[in-house]
Write a protein that binds this DNA or RNA. Structure first.
Length: 412
RNA sequence: CGGGGCGUCGUAUACCGGUAGUACGCUUGCUUUGGGAGCAAGAUGACGGAGUUCGAUUCUCCGCGCCCCGACCA
C-alpha cells in the first residue's frame, strides 16, 4: 500500500475527549474513528489488525474442533423471554419496530445457538460439538469507558460446546483453556487464568483470562512463583499472603483486563429450550453446555495499551497491519524513488505486506508517523541507499538499527 | 444510575457581556527535504433551546453530548 493513497492520516494531537491511551493512540494513528461513546468504526489500518487477531483466534478455535458459523445479531425477543434474560439481563438492548414488534440485539448468543444445536444434534452420535462465531456484540452499558476496551458495540468471538457428559465437557474445557492461552501469547501478551464467579446465570465456576494493565477494570491477586491467580472478587487471600497453591510465593495485587472467559453452563439452556438428545439406549438426555468468549476489540485495546510507548503503537509481528514500513526520504531524487519503488515491488513479491511511505513530506514527519503507526520493521531509503545499495532496517520495538544490502533484505 | 468535570474552525487550544485569536491540518504559489519546515495569500468555528440584558459565544436554567470516579459488567 502506498501511503500517499491511504485515505487516513495521522494526527499530531490526541483527542481531548479521550483519556484512555489505547483510544488516543488508535485515533491519532488513524486506526479507528469514534462514532459515539463506546462505539468505534475501524479504518483500514485498524481493520487489518482486527482481522489478524480474528485469524489467530479462528485458527486456534478450529484447532480444538470448533466450527465457525455466523449468527444473526438482530434477534427475535422470544428466545430471550424463554430463558428469562429479557427481564433479567439489564445490558440487553431491546428495540421495537414500527409495528411494535420487539427485538433484541445480540449481547451473547446462547439464546440463538442452543436452538440451532438442537436442530442438528438430536442424537448422542452428534455430540460433542463446538460451534463459534466472530462478530459484533451489543451491550447497553451504563458507562462505556477506556476507549475500545469497554464499548456498547464490540467485536467478540463466542464459542459454545455441547457434551454428553460432565467428564467430556471438562476435557474440552481444558483444551479450550490451552487454546486461549495460545491466542494471547501469539498476540504478544501474557495472560493469567483466574477463577471467578459464574455470574447470575450459572452457579458454576468460570475462568477468566487476565492481562495485567492499568487500563483494566479488575483487580487480581497473583503469585510470582507459580501460575496461581484469582480475581479479588472471589479470592479468600489478600495481598501479601502466601500463595495457596505453591506455598512458596507471595501474592501480589494488580489491575488487569479480562480478555476472555470460559463458563460451565451446565444444563440451563438445554432445559430452557427443551434441548434433549437420545442416548444409546434411546432415552432423552440433556447435554452439558459450555461457552467461551474472547473480546476481540478489547484484546486489540489491551495490546495497544501494553505494547506502545511515548512515540506510539508497537505491534507484534503476528498482528501488525503491515510487515514492513518502507520509507523513502528523498522523493525529489528520481534514483532514490526508483530504488524504493523496486524494493516495494520486490518485497511485495516475496509476500511481505508493505506500507510504502512515498509521500513527499519531510523525513521527520515520516519518522514520527512510522513511530506512531507502529509497524514492527522499518526500512529506510536515504541519500546513500542508491550508491551503496544499502538500506537501514530499524526495529520499532527496540529501536535497534542495522544497515543491510538490498539482497540481504530480500532474503529475510 | 449517583457524583464530578467539560462542550469555541477538521484537530488542539486562547480570550472576551460589544460576533473570536493562535498552532497544526486544508486550498494556491514559491522555497525546503535524515526527526512533525519557511514565506505569502486564502477558506473554515461558539452543541441545542429558553431566560437575564440595549446587546450573550461569555451569565442563569433546561436539554443533549463527551470524559472521569463509583455502582454495574450476561
Amino acid at each position: 500500500m502506498r501511503q500517499s493513497q491511504l485515505f487516513t492520516k495521522t494526527r499530531r494531537e490526541a483527542p481531548a475527549d479521550e483519556t484512555a491511551k489505547n483510544a488516543q493512540l488508535l485515533i491519532r494513528a488513524g486506526f479507528v474513528h469514534k462514532e459515539m461513546a463506546g462505539v468505534y468504526s475501524f479504518l483500514p489500518l485498524g481493520l487489518r489488525v482486527l482481522k489478524k487477531i480474528e485469524d489467530i483466534v479462528r485458527e486456534e478455535m478450529d484447532a480444538v474442533g470448533g466450527q465457525e458459523i455466523r449468527m444473526a445479531t438482530l434477534h427475535p425477543s422470544e428466545p430471550w423471554k424463554q430463558t428469562g434474560a429479557w427481564e433479567n439481563v439489564d445490558v440487553l438492548f431491546k428495540i421495537q419496530s414500527r409495528t411494535e414488534k420487539e427485538y433484541a440485539l445480540g449481547q451473547s448468543e446462547e439464546e440463538i445457538v442452543t436452538p440451532i444445536a438442537q436442530e442438528y444434534a438430536p442424537s448422542y452420535k452428534d455430540l460433542p460439538v463446538a460451534i463459534y462465531q466472530i462478530g459484533q456484540k451489543y451491550r447497553d452499558e451504563l458507562r462505556a469507558k477506556s476507549g475500545i476496551m469497554r464499548g456498547r458495540e464490540f467485536g467478540m468471538k463466542d464459542m459454545y460446546s455441547f457434551h454428553t457428559s460432565q467428564e467430556d465437557f471438562e476435557k474440552f474445557y481444558e483444551r479450550a483453556k490451552e487454546a486461549y492461552l495460545r491466542v494471547y501469547s501469539r498476540c504478544g501478551l501474557v495472560a493469567k487464568v483466574t477463577e471467578a464467579s459464574g455470574g447470575s446465570f450459572s452457579e458454576k465456576l468460570s475462568y477468566e483470562f487476565m492481562v495485567i494493565t492499568d487500563a483494566g477494570e479488575d483487580d487480581i491477586l497473583y503469585c510470582e512463583a507459580c501460575t496461581h491467580c484469582a480475581n479479588v472478587e472471589v479470592a479468600k487471600e489478600k495481598e501479601g499472603d502466601s500463595c495457596p497453591k505453591c506455598g512458596k510465593g507471595t501474592l501480589k495485587k494488580a489491575k488487569a483486563s479480562e480478555v476472555g472467559n470460559v463458563f460451565d453452563l451446565g444444563q440451563k439452556y438445554a432445559r430452557d429450550f427443551g434441548f434433549s438428545y437420545k442416548d444409546a439406549e434411546g432415552k432423552d438426555q440433556l447435554p452439558i453446555m459450555g461457552c467461551y468468549g474472547i473480546g476481540i476489540t478489547r484484546l486489540m485495546g489491551v495490546i495497544a495499551e501494553t505494547l506502545s510507548d511515548e512515540k506510539g503503537l508497537s505491534w507484534p509481528e503476528a498482528i501488525a497491519p503491515y510487515d514492513v514500513h518502507l520509507l523513502v526520504l528523498t522523493t525529489d531524487d528520481a534514483a532514490s524513488v526508483a530504488f524504493a519503488d523496486s524494493l516495494y515491488e520486490d518485497l511485495s513479491k516475496k509476500g511481505k505486506k508493505v506500507l510504502y511511505d512515498d509521500r513527499s513530506v519531510r523525513a521527520g514527519e515520516k519518522f514520527a508517523d512510522a513511530d506512531l503507526i507502529g509497524i514492527p520493521a522499518r526500512v529506510i531509503v536515504g541519500k546513500d541507499s542508491v550508491a551503496k545499495g544499502e538500506v537501514e532496517l530499524v526495529h520499532r520495538a527496540t529501536g535497534q538499527m542495522e544497515k543491510v544490502t538490498k539482497e540481504t533484505l530480500l532474503a529475510w
